[in-house]
């Protein structure tokens, strides 16, 4: 560093700058970063400025405009009866698989699945208009069962990416009911 013509600060000046940098960092962290990124708002500044709203989880786009047969948001009606399916999905060791069904926007699906081994799951959908671009609804690092529902935010295929986290061959038992179509495989 001796080749530089830059005047480096004295030890006391350096300490002051070190302290100053730390203080500024903490202030920015408390005022901006924590509210915006984690919804932690120790000063109230985040609420005042709307920063805390930024980190509310954006999992899926809000359910798109319902199809014409649906008039209210609480009660949904459909022109066809619901269907029910039970499916066994085998998974090899370290195996992974996508299981998806096709749904119209506003279509409802309720499901339960179980597996003897822990799985990594990404529940997601792909719009018919933009196949290949997945919208993730929930990601679970490790689970042996899952229960839930989905109101399809768009017309497209919706379902799960399952990945076996173990060296054992296993089977996923999936039960679904709702308004959807199976995709022929």
């Amino acid at each position: 560093m001796s080749t530089t013509p830059v005047m480096l600060p004295s030890p006391s000046g350096l300490l002051a700058r070190l302290g100053g940098a730390l203080v500024v960092a903490v202030v920015i962290l408390l005022l901006f970063v924590m509210p915006a990124e984690y919804q932690i708002d120790p000063t109230g500044f985040g609420k005042l400025t709307g920063l805390t709203k930024m980190s509310q989880t954006v999992t899926a786009p809000p359910a798109a405009a319902p199809t014409p047969v649906m008039n209210t948001t609480a009660a949904h009606t459909y022109t066809v009866p619901f269907r029910t399916d039970e499916i066994a999905i085998p998974l090899g060791k370290d195996g992974e698989l996508e299981y998806k069904v096709h749904m119209q926007p506003g279509g409802t699906l309720i499901y339960s699945w179980k597996c003897a081994e822990p799985l990594y799951i990404d529940f997601h959908g792909e719009s018919d208009k933009d196949p290949g671009n997945a919208t993730s609804y929930t990601v679970t690092q490790e689970a042996k069962e899952g229960n839930g529902s989905l109101i399809a935010p768009f017309a497209g295929i919706h379902g799960w990416f399952f990945q076996n986290q173990t060296d054992h061959v296993t089977v996923i038992h999936l039960k679904m009911s709702g308004f959807y179509e199976l995709i022929p495989k």
Binding site: V6, M7, L8, P9, R17, L18, G20, A21, L22, V24, A25, V26, I28, L29, V33, M34, E37, Y38, I40
Partner: peptide, 20 residues
């Protein structure tokens, strides 16, 4: 000198962000 102090500050900020 000021530029390095700013970089140092950003480093502290990254630490705080990740530790939170």
């Amino acid at each position: 000198v000021a530029a390095n102090v700013v970089v140092m500050m950003l480093g502290f900020l990254l630490i705080g962000y990740q530790l939170t």
